[in-house]
Amino acid sequence: MGDRMSDLPFKSMDEVKSFAAEMKSQLDAEGYRALLFLLGLLDNQGVSRVVEIDGKSIEIDCYIAPIVEELNRRGFKTLSCCSGLDEEHENVDYKSDVGYISFVFDVKLYDYLQNKLGNSYVVKQSEAYLTPSIYVEVSGINDTEKKKKWVKLWETLRLFDSV
């Protein structure tokens, strides 16, 4: 992963939140929403439901909420996610064409996902909320294809037992 984390201007998410708060008075409403989006602080804009993860109430896109809940119960540490489904993001300003899920980086999980998912998914080392992570992208030409890939990813993760 290199030393990318130490090069960041922020050392904690509290610093990121403070920066956003300082910038609020200098931006119009749309500019501030764009900044929150870029910093990963914009509230979930899709069709979601609240789930409890590590004692915190978090909004997760409805389709993947059961997946994220189960993974966290099993010891996977998820950091961020988006279903990428058009049906859950019809009326949002900032929309991704792909779904994704990020986990706290674990070399065994990373190697497992790279070996089991092949090139039908993007699996890469990344950062999420200033934390080294594994990013898994779920893409498809439509919601039906993306849902099939979410199911395959979930089934693949169910077989991983080293968390």
Rank of each mutant, 00 (worst) to 15 (best):
149 K>S: 02
56 K>H: 10
129 Y>V: 01
84 G>C: 07
48 S>C: 14
113 L>S: 03
124 K>D: 09
115 N>P: 03
128 A>D: 05
158 R>C: 09
53 I>Q: 00
85 L>Q: 03
22 E>W: 06
129 Y>D: 01
148 K>N: 14
54 D>Q: 13
81 C>Y: 00
17 K>I: 10
94 Y>C: 08
114 Q>I: 12
85 L>F: 12
28 D>Y: 13
144 T>Q: 12
40 G>T: 08
140 G>H: 08
100 Y>L: 07
20 A>M: 12
141 I>A: 13
68 V>W: 01
53 I>E: 01
26 Q>P: 02
41 L>N: 04
70 E>I: 06
21 A>T: 14
11 K>V: 09
87 E>L: 09
59 E>V: 01
134 I>D: 00
136 V>Q: 00
110 Y>C: 05
72 N>P: 10
52 E>F: 07
43 D>V: 09
12 S>W: 08
96 S>F: 15
24 K>N: 07
57 S>T: 07
70 E>Q: 14
36 L>F: 06
144 T>R: 11
59 E>Y: 02
56 K>C: 05
159 L>Y: 07
68 V>D: 00
89 H>Y: 09
67 I>C: 05
108 K>N: 14
70 E>S: 13
17 K>C: 02
28 D>E: 12
97 D>I: 10
69 E>W: 04
2 G>Q: 12
83 S>I: 03
39 L>A: 03
137 E>W: 05
24 K>E: 15
9 P>G: 07
45 Q>F: 05
71 L>N: 02
7 D>W: 13
58 I>W: 02
116 K>G: 05
53 I>D: 00
30 E>H: 14
11 K>E: 13
94 Y>D: 06
85 L>S: 04
31 G>F: 11
20 A>V: 15
37 F>L: 08
121 Y>I: 08
106 D>I: 02
49 R>Y: 03
34 A>I: 07
43 D>H: 09
49 R>W: 04
78 T>Y: 03
112 Y>A: 06
141 I>P: 01
153 L>A: 03
32 Y>W: 11
126 S>Q: 08
157 L>F: 05
22 E>T: 10
63 Y>N: 01
64 I>G: 00
28 D>W: 13
100 Y>F: 15
104 V>H: 05
104 V>L: 11
68 V>I: 15
15 E>Y: 12
146 K>G: 01
78 T>D: 03
111 D>P: 00
84 G>L: 04
81 C>W: 00
115 N>I: 06
148 K>D: 11
95 K>I: 12
50 V>W: 04
98 V>W: 06
69 E>I: 10
133 S>E: 06
72 N>Q: 08
141 I>H: 11
64 I>V: 13
37 F>K: 14
142 N>K: 11
37 F>Q: 13
16 V>N: 03
30 E>K: 15
33 R>Q: 14
133 S>Y: 02
40 G>K: 09
32 Y>S: 03
121 Y>T: 08
55 G>Q: 14
133 S>M: 03
135 Y>S: 07
75 G>D: 07
153 L>K: 00
78 T>G: 01
74 R>W: 10
29 A>D: 15
122 V>P: 02
117 L>K: 04
24 K>I: 05
71 L>F: 08
8 L>G: 06
159 L>H: 13
50 V>A: 11
55 G>S: 13
